[in-house]
Computed example of a mutant assay.
Amino acid sequence: MKNEFDSHFVLAVFEKIRSHGKHQDDAYTLEGVKAYTDFDGYTLFIEDASVKLSFGFHNQYHFDYEKAEQMEQFEKKLRHIDASYA
């Protein structure tokens, strides 16, 4: 699987998690997906139990996961959040 997300998609999902999710300990959680920033707000993190996405300056991003199936499930969760919340 090719790990490419449009920067607008990542930012939209992050904002939807922030707007509709539960706030706890400087992070927001929605449907099992957690979103937060680093101390200065330049790097965003979106993660579930198996995959971590860090998205930063100049739209650079990095995924951390062990199996392709985990990434596929993570992408499905993000697309579901994007489609389900206005």
Rank of each mutant, 00 (worst) to 15 (best):
A35V: 06
I17Y: 11
S7D: 12
A83T: 05
Q24E: 15
F39S: 02
N59I: 05
H62S: 11
L30Y: 06
Y36P: 00
A12G: 05
I46A: 09
F5M: 12
D38E: 00
R18A: 10
K22L: 02
Y28D: 03
H80L: 03
Y42P: 06
D40Q: 14
T29M: 09
K2E: 14
A86I: 05
Q24H: 13
F5C: 07
A83N: 12
H62D: 14
E31N: 14
Y65K: 09
S50I: 05
K22A: 08
D38T: 01
F74K: 02
E72I: 11
M1V: 03
K76W: 00
L11D: 05
T37S: 09
F45A: 00
F57Y: 01
F14K: 04
K77L: 14
F74T: 05
D26I: 09
E75P: 02
D25K: 15
K52M: 06
I46K: 04
K2R: 13
D64F: 12
G41C: 10
K77Q: 08
D25N: 15
S54T: 06
Y85N: 13
F45P: 04
G56K: 00
I81D: 05
K76D: 12
K67E: 15
H62I: 05
D48L: 04
H58F: 14
S84Q: 11
I81F: 02
Y61S: 01
N3H: 08
E31R: 07
H80N: 04
Y61M: 12
A86N: 10
F9A: 05
H58L: 14
D48A: 00
D82W: 01
E69N: 13
L30H: 11
D38Q: 12
Y61R: 12
A68Q: 15
A83W: 02
F39D: 07
H80K: 03
K52Q: 06
L30P: 10
F74W: 06
E15R: 01
L78Q: 08
V33S: 02
K77M: 08
M1C: 03
S50R: 13
N3Y: 15
K76L: 03
